[in-house]
Amino acid sequence: MSTYNPINALLLFFAILIMAFFVFRPSKGWLWLILNSTKTNDKIVVEDILKLLYHNENADKHLNTNDIVRTIKNNERLIIENINKMVLHELITVEGDVVKLTKSGSDYALRIVRAHRLWEKFLAEKTGFKEAEWHALAEQKEHELSAAETEQLASRLGNPQFDPHGDPIPTQTGKIAKIKGTPISELEVNTIGRIIHIKDKPDVIYRQILAENIHIGSLIRIVEKTPERIVFHSEGEAFVLAPIVAGNITVTVLEKDMTFEDDLARLSNLKEGETAKIIGISKEIRGDSRRRLLDLGFVKGADVRIDLINPLGEPKAFLIKGTSIALRNNQASKILIKKE
């Protein structure tokens, strides 16, 4: 202890702290990089190429080697090497310039797509991750799930048909449900429809749609359509979108006699002393928290009013079916009501 003095001790401490920061920092820390560098192996490159080809062939586009190198963000030599390997394993064929999937290649691709979409469904139903984070997380997880794990996941989720964006999840045997719908941009004024699909690419537009709080499953009614903008009502709010954005949202058109509630409000906007009827729960609430709200009696047609307000404004307790239930604003704002 001869060299001890408090300043040295503190300096040493902060030096260790800074070191630790560099080593353990998530996603940029050295530890993370080391762990990850061993993971960016051939498998990921191969699977990414397969997926890329699959999506493009579905859109009837054919890619050459250059396209692939350009789109996949990875070491160029690695990609070329792997393309050659994939030809050897008969996953793809190269005819002239064009790269095509073989039967076994497209089966493989389907399995990856299945894993990806199932994982997105899982994130939506069983975790608290934000919608904007799903895609990136599933992009990683699809490479990690083995075939058996994928099937386990599917059965745990009840073999869902669609992922949370409305994209069909291929079945184990490779069947894919067709999306039958119309982009919002092609609908006439006053059509009523239900959103069934939101494209999660390109990212810029997808983020814009998310920021607007538009969700799969919501009912909409078109109220205005011009070349510059499309206006529609959904869940008591008006949305204004540019046609190219609206083109990324697909709806199924519903029958004429469907009643569309226009003057909806949200439970969070209910004032003390007012009463209201519940119209429904926004599709944004999913999984267990949706079920719990239904179980507690927040179902269509139930009467609701405010029972108590927290001294700081939130949460509020609502009187529903004779019981006082407190909810935070982020949930209450997703319960649609009609004031009386």
Binding site: L123, T127, S324, I325, A326
Partner: peptide, 12 residues
């Protein structure tokens, strides 16, 4: 704990 499910409802 980011990403764990988070809900709130409280019966009084």
């Amino acid at each position: 704990l980011k990403g764990e499910v988070s809900t709130f409802n409280l019966e009084l």
